[in-house]
Design a protein around this nucleic acid. Structure first.
Length: 488
DNA sequence: AAAAAAC
């Protein structure tokens, strides 16, 4: 049933490049999408992470460009015929490199433009003429407006990570770029995640599209083992180090939700003697590329990153992904863990869950269609306090399943001074007692803004609003509690 | 509670 690239009768230069890269069998998304793109149809393609989507669109696109030569093949005039757009600079770089490899034996030329780098070398490349242009949106608009490239002869547009490209942060730039392109063209959208809303929106950019879904949209790759551990915010670094040791993991992506958090975590881990480097949008592009390169080469063990690295990055044989924070979007969870378990390899994805992540975890469960079983984790520091011998049970994976032992150890732990929580922690805490009855009217209703002159502890208007908002029903808390108890 | 993408 699996088909070989050789059955496609691709042009010789492409077939040769594929063979040199050691590819023979097509993945399901490739087997399904390539013939359709070869027909010149618009495509919306969904397939799990790490299953070769880049080849699925670039190979047929190159083939068509070779077969349907533009009239103007004189070296003097090379209009951009294919445009590939991506949401991060590193991903643009990676995809451009891959396309260059596929096109190696053809006359087709390609280049990549993205921000954070000098405009001049990019401009020079564009002026020489390229048929295939890979880009991030902002820098491409710069080049368009500087008239460094002309896009009025573009025949093919690819939005890779299409759901991200169509989200609200990118949409204005994207629409402006599309306004420079001919109306008659082939448009290809690819991603591992498509929400129903994005699917609908995407439809308006496509003409009579063929939808290709290998497995259900938003599905996680079956090659990834997913684990969830209940870990306090302050214990995350210790828990990470412990799990790296227990699982025998050397190299891993470590995701956090904020740039500052990444910088701090990377520094702290380095102080602890680990080989970690941060990757996030506050670093210079030079640092970003260097960090990624070092990680790729295996010179760095831990890549401490924001969602800048969540999508698309294809690094061979990274065995593990850690989510030190649960991502804001459930989709990003799917992409993050997709950095491991690629091309049929196996991988483990470990996510740390705190009390405030419960709602987001439910979103993730809904999206991936799988129950997230949250396990307890006995920290080594707690084991020592508990009396020398490790209280570890079974294979060390389900470390601590006795609730009573858990309570005892907790009482042994140093008391930390913490700000009171705004909402309940269904894992450990007392149920939340709302300060106001749910039907209470804000006492300032109809009066002037209360923001000034309140308690000095209330700093933002937002927090004030939260105080006066009717309390949420406490029902989900007890449900979450009973299910995690059952799990542990 | 954020990040990404242009200077």
């Amino acid at each position: 049933m699996t088909q070989a690239f050789s059955e496609l009768s691709l042009a010789e230069p492409l077939a040769r490049a594929i063979a040199e890269m050691g590819f023979s069998a097509m993945t399901p998304i490739q087997a399904q999408a390539i013939p359709v793109v070869l027909q010149g149809r618009d495509v919306m393609g969904a397939a799990q992470t790490g299953t070769g989507k880049t080849a699925a669109f670039s190979l047929p696109l190159l083939q068509r460009m070779l077969k349907h030569e533009n009239a103007s093949t004189s070296p003097a005039r090379h209009p951009v015929r294919a445009l590939v757009l991506l949401p991060t600079r590193e991903l643009a770089d990676q995809v451009a490199q891959q396309i260059a490899l596929y096109a190696k034996h053809t006359q087709l030329r390609s280049t990549v433009v993205f921000g954070g780098m000098d405009m001049k070398p990019q401009t020079a490349e564009l002026k020489k003429g390229v048929e295939i242009l890979v880009a991030t949106p902002g820098r491409l608009l710069d080049h368009i407006e500087a008239k460094n490239c002309v896009l009025n002869q573009v025949e093919y547009v690819v939005l890779d990570e299409a759901d991200r490209m169509l989200d609200i942060g990118f949409l204005p730039d994207l629409q402006r770029i599309l306004s420079y392109l001919p109306k008659t063209r082939t448009t290809l959208l690819f991603s591992a995640t498509f929400s129903p809303e994005i699917k609908r929106l995407a439809g308006s950019y496509l003409q009579d599209p063929v939808t290709i879904e290998v497995a259900r949209s938003n599905a996680t790759a079956s090659t990834i083992e997913q684990r969830f551990f209940r870990v306090d915010e302050d214990d995350k670094r210790q828990a990470l180090k412990q799990l790296l040791r227990e699982k025998g993991v050397k190299q891993a992506f470590v995701f956090l939700n904020s740039k500052l958090g990444c910088a701090r975590m990377a520094r702290a881990l380095e102080r602890d003697g680990l080989n970690a480097v941060a990757l996030h949008g506050d670093k210079s592009q030079d640092e970003r590329l260097k960090a990624l390169d070092a990680f790729k080469k295996g010179e760095v063990d831990l890549l401490i990153c924001t969602d800048v690295a969540a999508r698309g990055l294809d690094i061979k044989d990274v065995p593990a992904v850690f989510n030190l924070d649960i991502p804001f979007n459930a989709e990003d969870y799917v992409h993050r863990i997709g950095r491991t378990g690629r091309a049929g390899a196996s991988g483990i994805a470990i996510s740390f869950v705190t009390g405030r992540d419960v709602k987001q975890l439910a979103e993730i469960e809904k999206l991936i269609g799988k129950k997230a079983e949250v396990e307890s984790l006995l920290l080594e520091s707690d084991q020592r306090r508990f009396g020398g011998a490790p209280a570890r049970q079974n294979d060390g994976q389900r470390l601590w399943s006795d609730p009573q032992a858990r309570a005892e150890v907790r009482s042994e732990r140093p008391t930390r001074v913490r700000a009171p929580r705004a909402s309940s922690d269904p894992f450990f805490d007392q149920p939340y007692q709302p300060a106001l009855a749910s039907d209470a009217k804000p006492e300032w209703e109809g009066k002037a803004q209360p923001a000034r002159g309140l308690s000095p502890f209330i700093k933002s208007k937002r927090k004030v609003a939260a105080l006066f908002r009717p309390a949420a029903a406490p029902a989900p808390a007890s449900a979450a509690e009973s299910s995690t108890e059952a799990a542990s």
